[in-house]
Write a protein that binds this DNA or RNA. Structure first.
Length: 864
RNA sequence: GCCCCGGUGGCGAAAUCGGUAGACGCAACGGACUUAAAAUCCGUUGACCGCAAGGUCGUGCCGGUUCGAGUCCGGCCCGGGGCACCA
């Protein structure tokens, strides 16, 4: 056996072994229990980053572990290959997005392969290939037939200089990223998918997903946002026009406290009022220019302006002024709200600002109410006061009574509304899946017939930033109307890339079929047994995938409704970000590897300087690794210097996988050192010659102690990987075992036998995490078989047995002593032993013992 | 602003069901080996008091429940993720 640990050699050998034997080729086998282990596929951005390493190592550890449990494991990989960065790269270097994407896929495939992942590469897919995206188009047409896909207008960011639609990411402080022009909002026709039709089942089914993290289910439930409330009508007569202003409220019990109504800038009443009021028209225009992003909308200053119109209170008949408010969302509810300043914080703020009356109508436990300043309990539930016949009613009763009265007057009814909005999938971009529609002057938008699919995306175009190049590409545009045969134009919008990622996990099961979107193999492999990906996908991607799967289920294409049985959300990988901001011009970011940190001896201040010029740079804190912040760490350098096993071990050990991982260069060294120690331990053991069979029945106590620890570690690692998914503690346990084996100096044959067993257990435990090292060491330990085909060993329960256990003794909850008692001793014996302990007696003193709490096998607490 | 998550030594973290706070690792310091360095190995390391035995304090802050709270409850502060066209 080679004395030195040389990762480059053993990793190449192990990977060659797996590759030549097709170890990870997965085939359908009804006689075996399948395990579909899926990591979110990467966007081929150029090179792998540490987030990928973390994601795919977690998946690989589970895939390899489940394989050792005897499961028929499928672990596939593919590319989320359409998207904006490819177009940005094209603008920057004049290369077609297809070429850039293909190059990136080749690079990243090579990088992923160097990590030694147990992937069935025969099943690889890329969403930019026609044999994949044609099925996006095909299913879109099925949705169109059923009205699940439909056309309506939507709002986009418009750069007036480049005459192009911008993504939210391309809007910086309200200006276009390239031109700096003030971005405008524009209404254009788009295609939507009616995910709201599935709001209820998507919400209800969350309860049937026990394998999902609670926090993700909570986030999705909040996102879908079911609200039970009352739709209230405020009738009005404005000039000749008679109508009813409709608002939705979950707090109909506060209806008697309404002192104003507010409508969104896009609301018809706002438009009507603005017609004859230039100041209001200007305000409406200002609101419409304002931010399109909810986060910005919610943090902007709340502003309003009166329309001059009044509506009638549906119960009291009182005149209620109508305002336009920049905080009212047209997309939620009715695009109008009733203002109850006394019991809604936002309305309170608005009323204070504009001098509107505040009328208190809810009493909470008789607490004194003041209109001076808002208190959070003002919004609590209570009983109606100053509300006429509703006085004294608690919330539920008041809501029911008011809803009934409104219904009688024809001005309201109980209603359920959802926060969830339909999914707009049209993108005015080139590098995406073409929407299979033809625009005919006479027939309007006409679906492309199935026989003409796929609508191929031309791959040689180079966008220049001035809009979608498809719109200037005659060969793509020119076509005939499938309905009337007249010359027509092809739709140039492409689909949101979330469409691509909403069903890719199905295609892995049958990526070789050209005849259909999916086939029967899907029902063997799916649903995914374990899905692993970043927490940043907790809502959108996962909800869209759940929706898409349900649509496919309802079309009879798949037999299941939920695609992912178990979900694991890994934390983000963070790193410090360094930058300089020149007096004029764009912020420049510097990679942390180019920055040196030292501590100023005088004021203990951290000083960061750029290695290249010695000048100071500013630290922007610790944030997600990203290209735009230039704070990524290149895993390839790590693999080249230390090997894939060190990279894998470090990312699994440095933090629990669900939490954020803060990058540090130190610690990689530690991981490497540990692997060298494991290698050395096996080397020393093998070097000492052959090993006699273990004689379990006649071992000495020191030998039994080693066996106890070995099997305890085996049990713990199995539990940590298989149930808890805490790979960091599994590794720590193996480290402890290795430390103990290292201290153990074998003197006789049985010492060596016990050590041999311990080393085998350590190598088996590590094999899902550092498979190359384990592959090599397993052979050195005398096996002809490959460790990748080994089963996870059973724990020897007899080895775990212990004659005595240590019991901790507390006095008044403070640790005061320890006593050893026979394992299995009853409570009275433990209590007696604890009270007899000298240290305990000293602390108990002469005081009377009030109580003794005995926790069997653990602890005694004496209360005096 | 809203929704979700987190905060424990110099640092990453552990404590799985309310029961020994700091396992494991990094860094630092001391020592061994070496002509020297690297590598490796051994030891020390939460704070404070004490010669020591030992004691007191300590899990972001304030309060509560409990024999016992890092863990449960209420209120706050700070950090991260998401907010629908980044993926």
């Amino acid at each position: 056996m080679q004395e030195r640990y040389e990762p480059a050699t053993i990793e190449a050998e192990a990977q060659k072994y797996w590759e030549e034997r097709g170890c990870f080729a997965a085939t359908e086998d009804r006689s075996r229990e399948k395990y579909y282990c899926l990591s979110m596929f990467p966007y081929p951005s150029g090179r792998c980053h540490m987030g990928h390493v973390r994601n795919y190592t977690i998946g690989d550890v589970l895939a390899r572990f489940m394989r050792m449990q005897g499961r028929n494991v499928l672990q596939p990989m593919g590319w989320d290959a359409f998207g904006l960065p490819a177009e940005n790269a094209a603008i920057a270097n004049g290369m077609p997005p297809a070429k850039w994407t293909d190059d990136n896929i080749a690079t990243m495939r090579r990088q992923l392969k160097s990590l030694g992942l147990a992937i069935d590469w025969r099943r690889e897919i890329a969403t930019c290939r026609p044999d994949y995206y044609r099925w996006n188009q095909w299913l879109f047409l099925r949705m169109l037939e059923r009205g699940i896909a439909y056309r309506k207008t939507g709002v986009v960011n418009w750069d007036p200089v480049d005459r192009t639609v911008l993504a939210n990411e391309q809007v910086i402080d309200g200006r276009g990223w390239r031109t700096g022009a003030l971005v405008e909002k524009r209404e254009i026709p788009m295609y939507y998918l009616a995910i709201t039709r599935y709001a209820e089942p998507l919400l209800e089914a969350l309860a049937q997903l026990p394998g999902w993290p609670e926090r993700v289910r909570t986030m999705q439930a909040n996102w879908i946002g079911r609200s039970e409330g009352v739709n209230v009508g405020f009738p009005y007569e404005i000039g000749e026009t008679r109508g009813v202003l409709r608002v939705f409220t979950t707090r109909a019990d506060t209806l008697m406290g309404v002192t104003f109504c507010a409508v969104a800038a896009e609301h018809p009443l706002a438009a009507l009022a603005a017609k004859d009021d230039p100041a209001l028209a200007a305000f409406v225009a200002e609101c419409q220019r304002g931010p399109a992003i909810e986060a910005e909308l919610a943090t902007q200053e709340k502003k309003g302006m009166p329309t001059g119109f009044s509506v009638r209170h549906p119960l009291s008949g009182e005149a209620i002024p109508v305002w336009v408010g920049n905080y009212v969302l047209m997309s939620y509810g009715e695009g109008a709200v009733m203002g109850v300043p006394a019991h809604d914080e936002r309305d309170f703020e608005f009323a204070k600002k504009y001098g509107l009356p505040i009328r208190r109508v809810i009493d909470v436990d008789g607490r004194p109410y003041s209109t001076q300043a808002w208190e959070s309990w003002y919004a609590d539930h209570g009983r109606c006061v100053d509300s006429g016949r509703y006085d004294g009613m608690p919330t539920a009763a008041a809501v029911a009574a008011i809803a009934a009265d409104l219904a009688r007057a024809g001005l309201g009814e109980l209603r359920t509304i959802w926060r969830l909005r339909d999914w707009g999938i049209s993108r005015q971009r080139y590098w995406g899946c073409p929407i299979p529609i033809i625009q005919c002057a006479d027939c309007g938008p006409v679906p492309v017939p199935d026989s003409d699919l796929p609508v191929l995306l031309p791959e040689e175009l180079v966008p220049d930033g001035s809009g979608n190049p498809l719109a200037k590409h005659e060969a793509f545009l020119a076509c005939r109307c499938p309905r009337c045969g007249a010359p027509a134009r092809r739709e140039t919008d492409t689909m949101d890339t979330f469409v691509d990622s909403s069903w890719y996990f199905l295609r892995y099961a049958c990526n070789d079929t050209a005849a259909s979107m999916v086939d029967a193999r899907v029902d063997y492999w799916l649903p995914v047994d374990q899905y692993i990906g970043g927490i940043e996908h907790a809502i959108l991607h996962l909800l869209y995938s759940r929706f898409w799967t349900r649509v496919m289920h309802d079309l009879g294409l798949v037999s299941f409704q939920e695609p992912f049985t178990n979900l694991f959300t890994q934390g983000m990988v963070l790193n410090e970000v360094f930058y300089r901001k020149p007096a004029s011009g764009r912020i420049e970011y510097f990679n942390p590897t180019d920055v040196e940190i030292r501590i100023d001896p005088d004021d203990k201040r951290r000083i960061a300087t750029l290695r290249s010029d010695g000048g100071e740079v500013i630290s922007g804190g610790v944030v997600t690794m990203s290209k735009s912040k230039n704070n990524g760490v290149d895993p390839q350098a790590l693999v080249e210097e230390y090997g894939a096993d060190t990279a894998r071990l470090f990312t699994m050990f440095a933090a629990p996988p669900e939490q954020t991982l803060e990058w540090s260069d130190e610690g990689v060294q530690g991981a490497y050192r540990f692997l060298k120690r494991v290698w050395k331990a096996v080397y020393d053991h093998v070097d000492a010659g052959p090993v006699a069979p273990l004689e379990r029945a006649s071992l000495e106590e020191t030998q039994r102690a080693i066996r106890r620890l070995s099997h305890h570690t085996l049990a713990k690692v199995g539990d940590d990987i298989g149930r808890r998914r805490t790979f960091n503690t599994a590794i720590a346990a193996v480290m402890e075992l290795m430390n103990a084996l290292g201290r153990f100096e074998p003197r006789g044959a049985q010492d060596r036998a016990v050590l041999h067993e311990g080393l085998e257990i350590a190598v088996l435990c590590l094999s899902p995490i550092v498979p190359h090292l384990a592959h090599a060491l397993w052979r050195e330990l005398g096996h002809d078989t490959a460790i990748v085909d080994e089963r996870w060993p059973a724990v020897d329960a007899a080895a775990l047995e212990q004659s005595t256990v240590e019991i901790v003794v507390q006095v008044n909850g403070k640790l005061r002593g320890r006593v050893a008692v026979p394992s299995g001793a009853d409570a009275d014996a433990v209590r007696a032993a604890a009270l007899a302990d000298p240290a305990v007696r000293r602390f108990v003193g002469d005081g009377a013992i009030r109580k003794v709490v005995v926790v069997p096998g653990k602890l005694v607490n004496v209360v005096v």
